[in-house]
Design a protein around this nucleic acid. Structure first.
Length: 270
DNA sequence: AGTCACCTGATT
DNA sequence: AATCAGGTGACT
């Protein structure tokens, strides 16, 4: 469920709550399949006694760098969340719990159980993440770089944007919003786009993601956490099938691409 | 390149 | 009861 801005907000929240330098005293794996194919026992043993040195986001993964060459990777998938608490709370759907120093508790909650965690050495983790594409908010992500990637792909634009081996961080919502802002139809083959369309896409990707990051940061300190900003962030097309386009007034369309809903304005997006 | 499986809660 | 969900990897 969370895309780049939401994962970024989770990491930001963890750092604000002092996760860096916290020591893991013990671990409780309440649902073994969340750490599959590692055994719950080895997962716990790998965490226990280590210090969480730093937290960062890579694509939609949360990377917790531990002491003595271990990295804990958390992927939230659709419904996962990772938050620090006092130990007093009793949230539903807790799958893994880490007892930290200073009495804090780190919890991985995930109602649908699609999320996934693993602990690896830095080198092994680098291999695991090797297939990931470019970070859209990095300096390396230029219009020329996007044009390069686009040139080699016949994917429809929306599927290209959601393909994590090309550009990371965009999911179903932001891909739709980016395409609307760029004025590009989601069905267009990526290698058929003109240079100016690529330039508009490049600009829209950065603008939409940067705006969303700010928006989610603000909404994060609520019970709903990263989920809450859906009320705050102004979506132009996502979830608005049948409603008038904010730009031209014609009805927003909904189609299906790769089994998922795509929302767009067929008059603004060509 | 498209479909399905992974799971379960919320909504229609 | 049926459909949908902001993700991803495996499979046909």
């Amino acid at each position: 469920m969370p895309e780049l801005p939401e994962v970024q907000a989770v990491v930001h929240g963890l750092v604000e709550d002092g996760i860096e330098c916290a020591r893991i005293r013990s671990v409780t794996v309440r649902r073994a399949s969340s750490v599959n194919p590692q055994l719950a026992e080895e997962f716990s043993a790998a965490c226990k006694g280590r210090t969480i040195v730093s937290a960062e986001r890579r694509a939609k993964n949360i990377m917790l760098h531990l002491s003595r060459d271990r990295v804990l990777r958390v992927h939230l998938r659709m419904t996962g969340d990772l938050r620090i608490g006092t130990g007093e709370e009793n949230p539903p759907f807790v799958r893994v719990e880490w007892q930290l120093s200073a009495g804090h508790v780190l919890r991985f909650v995930d109602s649908r159980n699609l999320g996934h965690l693993q602990v690896r050495s830095e080198a092994d983790m680098a291999k695991t993440l090797g297939h990931l594409g470019i970070e859209p908010l990095s300096r390396a992500f230029t219009a020329a770089r996007l044009a390069d990637l686009a040139h080699n792909s016949r994917l429809p634009a929306k599927l290209f944007l959601m393909d994590q081996t090309k550009v990371v961080g965009l999911g179903n919502i932001y891909a739709a919003e980016v395409l609307f802002r760029a004025g590009v139809a989601p069905t267009r083959a990526m290698n058929a786009l003109e240079a100016d369309e690529i330039a508009r896409l490049h600009h829209a990707i950065r603008q939409v993601l940067r705006g969303a990051v700010q928006s989610v940061y603000k909404a994060y300190r609520t019970p709903a956490g990263y989920r809450n900003h859906r009320d705050d962030f102004s979506r132009m097309v996502y979830g608005r099938a049948g409603e008038p386009c904010q730009a031209c007034g014609s009805s927003i369309d909904r189609i299906r691409q790769a089994g998922r809903s795509t929302y767009f304005c067929s008059s603004c997006q060509r």
